[in-house]
């Protein structure tokens, strides 16, 4: 094993983690502000990817596709919030889970009816194809750009929440919903805006990742599960927690998949080691989650003390 390989895997973990952050940020905001468990968040990720692929296919321009994907996901989010979710805020979490699970099925089949059952094609923009030499190793330029993009969005979100009026209201909404409504803030509009923001971020993640993945129905659910792990580790409702949790999950998952089979191979047969190692690696982040919950039951950065 070389330093180059370790370094490349570290970058891979970082990039994976930052894309998870884009997914988790919206999920954790929605839970923190509205107390809503939204299983359909993965469907918004899928909508972003599909509209990006369709628009990029029509116009031949990835960036227009990205804008279309984000806009479509945000619009779908706002629509869902206004028509369905608004009725669920006062209900218990089980009702929310049932209703948003139904939304997954509706959105998946709707996407299939609209775009067909076969995966769509979405290419990396020409500007970002190829690899760059980072000294230690060659690295795909697009993945490097994803790292940059993820960091940029993280800074933007921090600015939005810490430095703007909307951010003040979001933080106030997390702390005391009744009081902020009593102060004359239109809480219904705030909820719709927060939900659309989270949906737009998920759509952005879907579009960005869609260029190096299969754009297909159901692509959001595996990411959704990881995003839930991230926000449980980070502390539900905390953007900072989502960032730290996403990076931990991204790096530990990547490193585990790569290192565990090698460690087992030192004392087992190679094909057995790769099977056992792969199986254990897929459990690693859940073990991490369990460990965090034992030490800090409310996650690393709990919002409500």
């Amino acid at each position: 094993m070389t330093a180059a390989l370790l370094f490349e895997q570290f970058l891979n973990g970082l990039q994976f983690g930052l894309m998870l952050f884009l997914m988790s940020a919206g999920l954790t905001l929605v839970f923190g502000v509205m107390g809503l468990i939204n299983l359909a968040h993965g469907s918004l990720f899928m909508i972003g990817a599909f509209f990006c692929a369709a628009a990029a296919g029509l116009t031949g321009n990835f960036w227009l596709g990205l804008a279309a994907g984000m806009a479509a996901a945000a619009a779908a989010g706002a629509l869902i919030e206004m028509t369905v979710l608004r009725r669920l805020y006062s209900r218990d979490h089980l009702d929310q889970v049932l209703a948003t699970y139904a939304l997954i099925l509706i959105l998946s089949e709707g996407t299939k009816i609209l775009f067909g059952p076969f995966p769509l094609y979405l290419d990396v923009p020409p500007l970002l194809t190829g690899t760059v030499n980072l000294g230690l190793t060659e690295y795909p330029l697009y993945r490097l750009a994803l790292i940059g993009f993820g960091l940029l969005v993280a800074v933007g979100l921090w600015f939005l929440i810490a430095r703007t009026r909307l951010g003040v209201r979001i933080r106030a909404g997390e702390n005391d919903r009744e009081m902020i409504a009593a102060l004359g803030v239109n809480i219904r509009a705030l909820y719709t805006v927060v939900f659309a923001l989270g949906a737009g971020l998920a759509g952005m993640a879907g579009a960005l990742v869609g260029a190096v993945q299969s754009v297909q129905v159901g692509m959001g659910e595996p990411v959704l599960i990881l995003a839930f792990v991230v926000i449980v580790i980070g502390g539900i409702g905390s953007i900072r927690g989502a960032m730290v949790g996403a990076l931990m999950v991204g790096i530990i998952d990547t490193m585990g998949r790569f290192l565990l089979p090698r460690i087992f191979a030192t004392f087992m047969e190679v094909n057995q080691a790769s099977g056992v190692g792969a199986a254990l690696a897929s459990m690693l982040i859940y073990l991490l989650m369990a460990l965090v919950l034992v030490i800090k039951p409310k996650g690393l950065f709990p919002i409500h003390g």
């Binding site: 094993m1 070389t2 180059a4 390989l5 490349e8 895997q9 891979n12 990039q15 994976f16 190793t137 060659e138 993945r143 990742v209 993945q213 299969s214 692509m219 595996p222 990411v223 990547t254 998949r257 790569f258 089979p261 190679v270 094909n271 790769s274 099977g275 190692g277 792969a278 199986a279 690696a281 897929s282």
Partner: peptide
């Protein structure tokens, strides 16, 4: 000969870790 034998997760969508191993 086999230069490497790797099992991925079912439904895996990101193969960066495997591609890095192929490279090496």
């Amino acid at each position: 000969e086999l230069a490497g034998e790797v099992y991925t997760q079912l439904g895996q969508t990101d193969f960066a870790a495997e591609i890095a191993q192929i490279r090496a």
